[in-house]
């Protein structure tokens, strides 16, 4: 705690913002790297789409209208009203209770 301390607040601010800007720059550069490394994944997915003539991603498989949204009835992705808070069955967080069958 001596008067030798000559660190200015603006210097500190410059450092903090500089580091932040650097991090943002790294993020931007990183996007190129990620995209390049992702290209092979994308290519394999595209190959699968081509060979199997797929039309839909497999994100929502819990109901037929959700898995193949493009193939079900018209407006199938919105079997609930679009203003309803959820339309994918799994979005209900808990599965429906089904009668247990042998």
């Amino acid at each position: 705690m001596t008067s030798q301390r000559n660190r200015r607040g603006s210097t500190l601010a410059g450092w903090v913002l500089g580091m932040g800007a650097l991090a943002l720059l790294l993020v931007l550069l990183d996007s190129g790297r990620l995209a390049a490394s992702h290209a092979e994944t994308l290519r394999q997915g595209q190959a699968r789409v081509m060979s199997d003539q797929l039309t839909d991603p497999a994100l929502f498989t819990e109901a037929r209208y959700a898995r193949h949204a493009s193939q079900a009835d018209q407006h199938a992705a919105f079997q609930d009203h679009p203003m309803a808070l959820e339309h994918f069955p799994a979005g209900a967080m808990t599965p429906p209770t089904v009668m247990p069958l042998p």
Binding site: S31, H38, T61, E62, A90, G91
Partner: peptide
């Protein structure tokens, strides 16, 4: 997104800046 889905894919995404 997953909710109670049983078959949920593992996937990675690539950014679009």
């Amino acid at each position: 997104l997953k909710g109670w889905s049983v078959l949920y894919p593992h996937f990675s995404l690539s950014p679009q800046i």
